[in-house]
Design a protein around this nucleic acid. Structure first.
Lengths: 185, 185
DNA sequence: GACTAATTTGAGGGTGCCCTCAAGTTATGA
DNA sequence: TCATAACTTGAGGGCACCCTCAAATTAGTC
């Protein structure tokens, strides 16, 4: 198979890297809907070159988002390693939302399931099992209310994504959500 | 002043009504960003006529949104009329969010301050005093946590608007937010 | 019925973003 | 250094939405 031995040209590799760097930066700053020609311009490359390397927008997403979502693995692992089930659950929430707050593309990808590509879905679903464990653990210890559902978590993510979007204090909001608004309890 | 006595032509009045009806319907269904030419088409009128009656998008918003926001007055009044301060506070939240859930344009206008026109801001601010009263009352009775701020309400509105947007169960989410996720309390 | 001012019309120009492809450039290996 | 495949380029066509304005139509008046 000689096709395998063909090496990419060096300029092509360099341009690809520049495109990824530019896209990563712009996605993080402004979300997943930055115009492609702006990415090309930032990378110092023509729009045609961008399309050579990434024929569709999803190709660009798939080259960037899954790697970033890898951070989720660590967050959920650390949460599960926490002795106290409730603290672990809270640590997970703070970890994920902190990630979303720092990177608008992750806010889009996690909370709004924006790209919705198979590849990204895979990364997310890889964590679902772990997260379910986290939830079960917190329920078993009596800390988390019994009726809590995964959908509640999804909605919390959506809600917080909007608080972040509005530049609100998401930690404060999370705290209120965890403890409730009622005074005595 | 003879200019005052000039009457609008009947077809113009009719077309204006049709435009308002079409815009109201489309706004409620799909939010405030429906294309103007779609509104004109729905009204059975040309795009030029739309611009005759409503030179800017804001003119259209101002002709529709403030009236709808009038419902807020009733909601807050009914909430204040409720004997139990906490029940009143909750009734207000349910009233407002119910409104947002039924009408996407109100979801945009209330929670995301989308049009941000002076006229709409006026309608909203008219209620602020009443809402502050509602909050103060609920705090005084010891039902609402002392550290609750108006900003917390704004963020809750933003959060719920997103839950509604994702077709989530906003009542469930509000319930969780009011009572917290922790099991015992 | 004819006049006129009010109103409507929709083609057309502008913008921003998408995507393509024929022509030009360049890395690479012989 | 040349040949060639690999790569880059950017003008250009498409689309969706915005907004304008000269020409056509029509309601209201005499």
């Amino acid at each position: 198979m000689p096709a395998e031995t063909r090496s990419r040209r060096s300029d092509a590799l360099r341009n690809r890297d520049r495109l990824l760097a530019a896209a990563a930066e712009l996605f993080a700053e402004r979300g997943l809907e930055v115009p492609l020609d702006e990415i090309a311009r930032t990378a110092g490359v023509s729009i045609g070159t961008l399309y050579n390397h990434f024929p569709t927008r999803d190709d660009l997403y798939n080259a960037i988002i899954p790697a970033r979502l890898g951070a989720l693995d660590q967050i959920v692992a650390r949460a599960l390693a926490t002795d106290d089930p409730w603290d672990g659950f809270v640590a997970y929430l703070e970890g994920v939302f902190g990630l979303q707050a720092k990177d608008r593309s992750l806010n889009d990808a996690i909370a709004r399931r924006r790209p919705a590509s198979a590849e990204i879905a895979e990364v997310c679903s890889r964590n679902v099992d772990q997260v379910l464990k986290l939830i079960a653990r917190a329920k078993a210890s009596g800390d988390l209310r019994e009726d809590f559902q995964p959908m509640d978590l999804a909605m919390l993510g959506a809600a917080i994504s909007q608080v972040i979007h509005e530049s609100g204090d998401w930690r404060r909001f999370l705290d209120l959500h965890l403890t409730g608004l009622r005074a005595n309890g």
